[in-house]
């Protein structure tokens, strides 16, 4: 237990990266720096804690009340002693401040060659946009290369938390915040939302996928190209999840902010301006010009979303597949990730 309290179970102070009693596995120089400061403060704190508790216990036992025995006389103050126990803590916390400050400043100075990924938090998912314009639900990064995250939010404040890298940054609506890291190990690690954001705050999880040297580019190329490599229905389902469609349009027949997409294709639609049938043209126009045809009972609130023809095509294929009138292959409404998001092996 003592070893565990001291954080030495796996020798973290020797620079190894395994998990300890206190800390999860660390993946970067910054993380081991943080662990070092954590341990430093831990040792100092333990010393003072034990000092206080041992003295307290000794006094309670040694000077316990006995019948007929008065308290012994001792001074009611002692200047040198009081200066000592004020001065020593000041020096110690001064060093704690300095180490913490130095390491924090490293987080603020972003290397010029950092690979930039835009992060958008929204209730209750993360979106990671890569320089190619490709958007993924997980954070994929190259190993041994500085990565800069530029965060914002579309609704309330979220906070991106990467415990293994010991970093966290709020995603604030209306402004951009930044953070960077350089991961030194490949693998898959947790990514969480740390700022309370409502009902599914605790489900706002994603994966941090660190690709080994040279493999990140392959993954990105393949992932960015998913429209060409995946069947249209699956690609459409992916777009449906990634591009925010599912926030308003369900696939189970229950109307949300917008109408459900289940059994939409091939069926009559009651518009505010009349009636029509949901065919390919209707869906295409509804996506590209949302306010042109408003379904009765709904508000004209859908924003225009930048989509290419290929993307619209994939979405139409997916919507078709959700209707028995469409001839698409059913995909079972599974929300699991298609293969394209897996790290390239």
């Amino acid at each position: 237990m003592a070893n565990m309290l001291l954080g030495t179970a796996n020798g973290s102070i020797l620079g190894q990266s395994g998990p300890t009693f206190w800390m999860p596995r660390e993946l970067s120089d910054h993380a081991s720096d943080v662990d070092w400061i954590f341990n430093y403060i831990l040792y100092v704190s333990l010393f003072f804690f034990l000092l206080i508790i041992v003295l307290m216990t000794v006094f309670v036992i040694r000077y316990r009340r006995r019948p007929g025995q008065e308290a012994l006389s001792s001074p009611t103050h002692n200047l040198p002693l009081e200066v000592l126990w004020t001065g020593v803590p000041i020096i110690l916390v001064g060093t704690m401040f300095f180490f913490g400050f130095r390491s924090y400043m490293d987080l603020g100075v972003i290397p010029l060659n950092a690979y930039e990924i835009k992060v958008t938090g929204q209730k209750w998912k993360w979106q990671f946009e890569y320089p190619t314009g490709y958007i993924d639900e997980d954070l994929h990064v190259p190993m041994d290369r500085p990565v800069q995250l530029t965060l914002t939010s579309t609704d309330v404040i979220h906070s991106l938390f990467l415990p293994n890298l010991r970093i966290k940054r709020d995603a604030v609506p209306g402004r951009y915040t930044k953070i960077w890291f350089r991961a030194s190990e490949a693998g898959e690690f947790p990514l969480m939302c740390a700022e309370y954001c409502g009902t599914r705050h605790s489900d706002m999880l994603a994966r941090l996928v660190i690709h080994p040297r040279g493999e990140f580019e392959q993954w990105l190329t393949k992932a960015s190209n998913f429209l060409a490599t995946m069947p249209p229905v699956e690609a459409g389902q992916r777009l449906y999840q990634l591009r925010g469609c599912k926030q308003c349009h369900s696939i189970d027949g229950v109307a949300g902010i917008g109408p459900s997409l289940k059994n939409l294709f091939g069926h009559p639609v009651q518009l505010q301006s009349g009636q029509t049938t949901a065919d390919e043209n209707y869906i295409r126009e509804s996506i590209l010009e949302p306010s042109s045809q408003i379904v009765a009972g709904f508000e004209p609130v859908m924003p225009r979303i930048r989509l290419s023809d290929a993307e619209v095509g994939a979405l139409i294929a997916y919507i078709k597949s959700l209707s028995e009138a469409g001839q698409g292959v059913p995909v079972g409404g599974s929300t699991t990730q298609p293969a394209a998001t897996q790290p390239a092996a």
């Binding site: 003072f48 913490g100 924090y104 987080l107 906070s159 970093i167």
Partner: peptide, 26 residues
């Protein structure tokens, strides 16, 4: 005394900038 000592000393971890980044909101 026992509990406040722990409470106060763990505050030192949180006052330290880099460590706080990891520990805050946890």
């Amino acid at each position: 005394l026992f509990l406040f000592a722990i409470g106060g000393l763990t505050g030192l971890f949180l006052g330290s900038l880099a460590v706080d980044v990891h520990l805050t909101d946890t």
